[in-house]
Nucleic acid binder design. Structure first.
Lengths: 245, 245
DNA sequence: CCTCAAAATTAAGGTAAATGTAAGCTTAAG
DNA sequence: CTTAAGCTTACATTTACCTTAATTTTGAGG
């Protein structure tokens, strides 16, 4: 079945264009209007951009990398201290592309000039869709949690219990992370395999079980009678009783 | 203001890949899986494509322009007489590009081989978004509802009542999910069997009853005098009194 | 490049929970 | 009353999962 979600209408989505070329601003504006974005603001330089950012609080920014009075990257960092507004970068081909690739762009995207209208709207939609939906964005800090007396830190991949400290292996880590993300809910074998191996599963069935077993040996007081990492026959596994720290 | 829309979950979105190269089918399949599209079918030729189109009724098609037994364009026109399914064309660079541009593609898009995974998913999202609107949601969220004093969470497959917490088995889960989807309406035995077992239904009559009984034992205060999961003699079963949470 | 230990995978036998079956019983409709 | 549809229970079977150990792969250090 479908689900009902509340989301901003495309007509209500405020966008800010930051570029020093008036012709390009006009063009982008036009493209966006045709696409249905009705609230579009534009700024020619950093100063103006900052002002509009503060007063209008846009839902997305289209930002030129090089601006007359500063750097697009620096500007983005400033925006980001205030909010998680998604940013789509504009850059001249070759000139800035390498720099862009090198950056930790996170949920953002970039587009090189010149571009097709279609390209712009495609990437913009994709960028916006990441923030308008309740998707967990790239999280720098991984969770630390507790299963009864056992403490688990996904930053270091360590499990601490009365027995001492153990380290999770790569597969164990991937599995536990996935289970924790969906804690309380059933996670199918397929999804777990995908999380740990990536590709489509052939004969993973048993391999998964063995890894689950090893994980249980590390996180369960009594691996053969699990209390936290439960099997749901025919459906998958689920993690219960996890207390966030 | 915002708007409320009903959208299909990305996991419920069925896609059909039509291409004669097995390796490409496999690759596209893989890309889509990673992106979260779980229901992907593939066909090697027009004949197979038509069959899958009729039986699965996919929500989107990724279609090679040239196929061993016919033309992708003709195939698309055929599809379109039945439904408004969005089509994303695949074509060899240069070879078919001009033809594609010359066509009145309408709401569709195309992509030339070879392509980057990112390109495929971007364009696919865009194509789908026209029918589903802003699309894209990574995490499937199943319903949580209440039957009187009993709370049911289909994410965790758990039933909570004054007696404590029980877990549904695979069959119980499938049946209850189907009944909930059609809550208030009668669901025939055939349809329930199909939901829980698949296409082939032989002599399930009694087996179904047994499973219904077991389900009632978990969700009914008094299984022998059901208040929520009712029998409709000669027709099937129906779920009533379900309050969405 | 080799060595060795840790990790991952494979294989095979075992087990219990989930499922299937059958037979007698109950209920509703005509 | 008769009949057919559905209910219930106990029991048989199956299959999904568990477990252990042997084998292969990986990767760090020499």
């Amino acid at each position: 079945m479908g689900m009902v979600i509340t989301m901003k209408d495309i007509f209500d989505c405020k966008l800010l264009i930051v570029d020093d070329e008036p012709e390009l601003r006009r063009m982008v504006n036009e493209i966006l209007r045709r696409e249905g974005f009705m609230k579009v603001f534009s700024a020619a330089d950093c100063k103006q951009a900052r002002r509009l950012m503060a007063s209008e609080k846009p839902d997305g920014v289209i930002l030129d990398v090089s601006l007359p009075d500063g750097d697009g990257f620096a500007l983005m960092r400033d925006f980001r201290t205030e909010s998680a507004v998604p940013v789509l970068f504009l850059s001249a081909r070759d000139e800035d592309e390498n720099r862009l690739l090198g950056l930790g762009l996170g949920a953002d995207d970039y587009i090189t000039k010149p571009f097709l209208p279609r390209e712009l709207t495609l990437r913009l939609r994709a960028v916006l869709s990441r923030t308008y939906f309740p998707v967990i964005l790239k999280q720098t800090e991984k969770p630390v949690f507790r299963l009864g007396e056992i403490e688990i830190d996904l930053n270091s991949g360590s499990v601490t219990s009365h027995k001492g400290q153990l380290t999770l292996t790569a597969k164990e880590f991937a599995l536990l992370e996935k289970l924790y993300e969906n804690r309380g809910n059933i996670v199918t074998g397929d999804r777990l395999c995908q999380a740990a191996w990536g590709d489509d599963l052939y004969g993973y069935e048993n391999t998964l079980m063995v890894h689950i077993r090893r994980l249980r040996e590390k996180i369960e007081p009594e691996p053969s009678a699990p209390r936290y990492l439960l099997t749901v026959r025919g459906l998958g596994y689920k993690l219960t009783g996890a207390d966030v720290i």
